[in-house]
Amino acid sequence: MPQIEQIAATLSSQVFWLLVFFGLTFVFVGLGMVPKILGTVDLRDKQIADDITAAQAARDQATSEEEAWRKRENANRAAAQGVIGEAKDKAAATNSTKLAEAQVRLDERLIQAETAIDAARNSAMAEIEAVAADAALDIVARVAGAEVEPAAAEAAVKEVMAHG
C-alpha cells in the first residue's frame, strides 16, 4: 500500500500542500465568497418576505377601503332612501292640502249652485203662482163670468199650491 510505504517520504509534502491548497480555498472561497453568496440569498429572502408583507398590507388596505366604501355606500343609500321618503311625504301632504282646497272650492260651488237652484226654483214658483193666479182669473172670468179680485185669486192659488 503506497499510503503506508511512502508515508515517511511524502508526509511533509502531503501535509504542506494540503494546508496550502485547502487554506487558499478556505480564504478565497470560504471566507471571501461564501458569506457574499449567503448575503445574496438572505437579501433575496428578505426582499421576498418584504414584498409579501407589502402585498399583504396593500390587500388589507384594499379590504378596509372596500369596507369603508361599502359603509359609505350603505349610508348614502340610506340617505337617498330618506330623501325619497321625505319627498314622498311632502308630495302626499301637498296632494292632501290641494285635495282639501279643491274639496272646499267644490263644496262652495255646490252650495252656490244649490242656492242658485233654490232661488231659481223660488222665482219660478213665484212666476208660476202669478201665472196660475192670472190663469185662475181668466178661467173664473170665462167660466163663471165673475170678476175676481187678483188678490183673492192669488190667495186661492197659494192655498191650493200649499196643499197640493
Binding site: 511524502t10 500542500w17 491548497f21 480555498t25
Partner: peptide, 29 residues
Amino acid sequence: INIAFTNSALWMAITAILVWVFVAGGMKR
C-alpha cells in the same frame, strides 16, 4: 522536511481551482 510538488499536490491544486471557479461562477449576486 521535503515539500516536493507531487501528483497528489497537483490534484489538490486542480481541486482548489475548480472549487474556486465553481463558486466564482455564482458570484453575480
